[in-house]
């Protein structure tokens, strides 16, 4: 099992588009991918859009990412890269 603290950096937070990209990415791996708010107020299965949206993670929210399974290393890398890149929304006004 791998764990990592990660910060939501994009302006819009985990809104619909970002959440969709996160779920798409997480779903390509066999490992389970979980996100939990650092304040423990909500936990989400990163393969479920309904659950990810409920995190209501806006910019600056700190999340704990937990990945477990056969391809956990690859999954962790891909999900972290996506979140840290701000879901590629930089150019937006």
């Amino acid at each position: 099992m791998l764990e990592k603290q990660i910060l939501i950096v994009n302006r819009l937070g985990l809104h619909a588009r970002a959440a969709a990209r996160l779920v798409r990415t997480a779903s390509t791996f066999r490992s389970s991918v979980r996100l939990e708010r650092a304040d423990h107020s909500a936990v989400a299965d990163a393969k479920s859009i309904l659950s990810v949206l409920l995190l209501a993670a806006s910019r600056g929210t700190e999340l704990r990412l937990t990945v477990e399974g056969a391809d956990e290393r690859e999954a962790m890398g891909a999900v972290c890269a996506l979140i840290e890149s701000g879901f590629g929304e930089e150019q937006e006004a």
């Binding site: 619909a16 969709a20 990209r21 779903s27 393969k47 479920s48 859009i49 309904l50 659950s51 949206l53």
Partner: peptide, 15 residues
């Protein structure tokens, strides 16, 4: 993209 969210809802095992 908005349809992505809806498509994913239809794939959401939770639902």
């Amino acid at each position: 993209y908005i349809f992505d969210a809806q498509l994913l809802m239809l794939e959401d095992r939770k639902l």
